[in-house]
Design a protein around this nucleic acid. Structure first.
Lengths: 330, 330
DNA sequence: TTGAAAGCGGTACCAA
DNA sequence: TTGGTACCGCTTTCAA
C-alpha cells in the first residue's frame, strides 16, 4: 500500500501539500501540483477511505435500509442505488429492516459509528427522532415513499393516489360495475394513499360501502385471504384493485381456486409493476412505478447532498404508468 | 460519541488497559477489568470500527459480490448473507458485477482499501490472481458455486450434476421420450455441470445427438430463443430440461406461443427453485437449490474464518430437491 | 499488571 | 505557497 507520505517523499514536498492537491483545497503552486499529481499516478496512490473517515471526512459509503431485499419490489431499487453509487465511487451497505423500528435504529446507530456519508431509507416505522440524530451529525438522508410532516429530508416517491385513480378508472372503463379494494397495511403510507385514490373514485357510487375494502398484508397470502373475505361479503364483485402486485397475485390465486374466471367474471389490477405480474396466467394489469428511476434519483440526490452541491430538501414525485395485461381484458 | 479515552479517564486507568479488556487480550487484573467493564456500560461505550480498521483490525464489514441483485436468484441469497452477518454484528457491502471481470477487480480493489474483513463472491469470471491478492492480505474469501482448481478458498455449492440427473430422470418417469436441454453459458460452472448431468442420463439413447442441446443465456429471452431453435431442429421433442428457471420460463412462453401444450405435448423442468416458478401457468417443475442455506452457510464459514476459528478450506456441497409442478404432470 | 507512547493514513490549523 | 504537527480513536510494543 502506498501512502500519502510515500508520495510526499517522492515528490519532495510535505504531506500537507499532497493532502492539499488531493482535496483541491488550500493554495498550491501549479507546478508543485503537477509534480504531485504525477507522483500520485506513478505510485498509483489512492487515499485510504478508512483514514479519511477517521479524520472526519467522507468514506464514500452510503447505506440503504429497506424492509426486505427478497421482496420482489426491492431488488431493482437496490440495483439502481448501487449502480449510481458505483458511478460516483461510493459503496452501498445493504440493510434489511423487516419494517422493525428496532432494527432500523440499530442499523442507523452502527452506520453512524462507521462514518457513512449518507442514508437512503424505505420505511414506514422509522421515527423522526432517529433521522434527526443522523442529521445532527450532518449525515444526509433521503426517504423513499415516506413523507414526514416535518420536511427535513429529501423525499422520492411515486404518484400513489393518482395511480390508484388510474387503476380504478381503467377497471371502470373495461366495464366493471362493482370494484373492491385490497389495501396494504394502513400504517404504510403508500398503501394509505392508494386507498384514498380508490375511495375518491368509487365513493359516489350507490353500491359502495366499507365492505368493499379489505386489508391484506402487502403479501401474497394477505391478498389471498382478503380476496376470500371479499367474496363472502360481496359475491357480486366484478373488479378488484389491489394495493400492490403481490396481493393482486394472491387475489388471482384465490379467484382461480374458487373457479372464478379472470378477467371474464372478475378483473384484477395491481400496483408496483414487479416482473412477476408479467408471467402469471393471466398476466396481471398493474400500475407500474418507475422503480429503477426512483432508486437512481434518490441516490443522485443523496450524493449531491453529500457533496454539498445541493442543500434544499425537495420532494420528487414520479409518475406511474398503467400496464394493461390479460387480467383486465374482458 | 464516547471514546476509549473517556472510559479510561472515568475508570482511572490507562487507554491501553481499556483496550486490553475490550479485546480480551493481554494481562489485566480481574478487579480493574470489572471496573472498566462497568464504566463501558455506564458510558455506553462502543469502539469505533473505523479507528479499529485504521489500526489494522476488523471493521466488522464483509462484502458480497454477485452478478446482479435484480436477477431473481440472488435476493434470497443476499438476504441470507445479510441475516447471518447481522447476527454477528457485521455489515454487508452489496456489489453487482454483471459478471464483468473488470468490475469484480475494481470492487475487490476498493474493498481492500476499505479494510473489509471478508468476501463472498458468486462469479465465473474472477481470476485466481485477484483472489490471491486478497488472500495475501489475509482477507478470507468464500466462493459460491465457483470451484477453482487450486483450492485455496472455502466453497459452497449445490449438487448440480446430481440435480440435473434427477431432473432428467423425472422427465423420463413422466413418460418423456425425447428430452432436450437448454444449457446455460458454457463458461458458467454450474451450467456446465448441469449439462454433464443431462448428458450422462441421455447419451445412451439412440435418438440423442448434439442437436438436443441449445445454449440460452441463463435468462428468459435466451431460454425462449433456444426453445425456438430446438423446435426447428427437433420438432418431436416432448421434454425439456432447462439449466435454470428463467430459461425454463422462456421456453414455456415460446411453447405456449407456438400453441404447444405444456405439459401434455412437452413437459418442462427448470433448475434453481426461484419463486417465480410457482406462479406461472402451468407452474414449473424445478430442481430447487437451498438458496438461503447456501448464503447462510457461506456467511457462517466466512465469519468463522475471519475470527480465525476455522482454518482449513472446505467445500460444502448442498443437496437439491425436486419440486414437482404442473409443467411435468402429463 | 499497568502505562506511555508510537503508530495506522489521512486532515487541517498555525507558522514560516 | 509551503511545511510542521497535533489530532481522529484505537492497537500494540516496550518499560516500568
Amino acid at each position: 500500500m502506498t501512502t500519502i507520505r510515500d508520495v510526499a517523499k517522492m515528490a519532495g514536498v510535505s504531506v500537507a501539500t499532497v493532502s492539499r492537491v488531493l482535496n483541491k483545497n488550500g493554495y498550491v503552486n501549479k507546478d508543485t501540483e503537477n509534480t504531485v499529481m504525477q507522483t500520485m499516478k506513478e505510485l498509483n496512490f489512492e487515499p485510504s477511505p478508512v483514514a479519511r473517515g477517521l479524520a472526519g471526512k467522507t468514506m464514500k459509503t452510503i447505506s440503504l435500509i429497506l424492509p426486505d431485499i427478497s421482496n420482489p419490489f426491492f431488488p431493482e431499487l437496490a440495483r439502481a442505488v448501487e449502480d449510481i453509487a458505483q458511478q460516483h465511487q461510493f459503496n452501498v451497505f445493504l440493510c434489511n429492516s423487516d419494517n422493525l423500528e428496532k432494527k432500523e435504529k440499530s442499523y442507523i446507530d452502527v452506520m453512524q459509528k462507521k462514518s457513512i456519508d449518507g442514508l437512503i431509507i424505505v420505511s414506514n416505522t422509522v421515527e423522526e427522532e432517529t433521522i434527526k440524530k443522523l442529521q445532527s451529525s450532518k449525515i444526509p438522508v433521503v426517504l423513499l415513499d415516506r413523507p414526514f410532516t416535518n420536511n427535513n429530508c429529501s423525499i422520492v416517491r411515486a404518484q400513489n393516489t393518482e395511480g390508484a385513480q388510474v387503476a380504478v378508472k381503467h377497471l371502470l372503463d373495461v366495464g366493471c360495475k362493482k370494484i373492491a379494494h385490497i389495501s396494504g397495511p394502513k400504517i404504510v403510507n403508500p398503501a394509505h394513499e392508494r386507498l384514498i385514490g380508490y375511495t375518491e373514485m368509487v365513493s359516489h357510487f350507490d353500491w359502495f360501502n366499507d365492505s368493499f375494502i379489505e386489508e391484506g398484508g402487502f403479501d401474497i397470502k394477505g391478498g389471498r385471504e382478503a380476496m376470500k373475505r371479499l367474496l363472502i361479503s360481496n359475491p357480486d364483485i366484478d373488479g378488484v384493485f389491489a394495493g400492490n402486485d403481490l396481493m393482486a397475485l394472491g387475489a388471482l390465486k384465490e379467484l382461480l381456486h374458487m373457479g372464478i374466471k379472470v378477467p371474464e367474471q372478475v378483473a384484477i389490477c395491481g400496483f408496483d409493476g414487479i416482473q412477476l405480474t408479467e408471467y402469471t396466467e393471466p398476466g396481471i394489469t398493474t400500475i407500474a412505478q418507475p422503480i429503477y428511476e426512483m432508486g437512481a434519483l434518490a441516490t443522485d440526490v443523496l450524493i449531491q447532498k453529500i457533496k454539498r452541491e445541493l442543500n434544499e430538501n425537495k420532494t420528487f414525485e414520479l409518475p406511474v404508468k398503467l400496464i394493461i395485461r390479460k387480467s383486465t381484458k374482458k
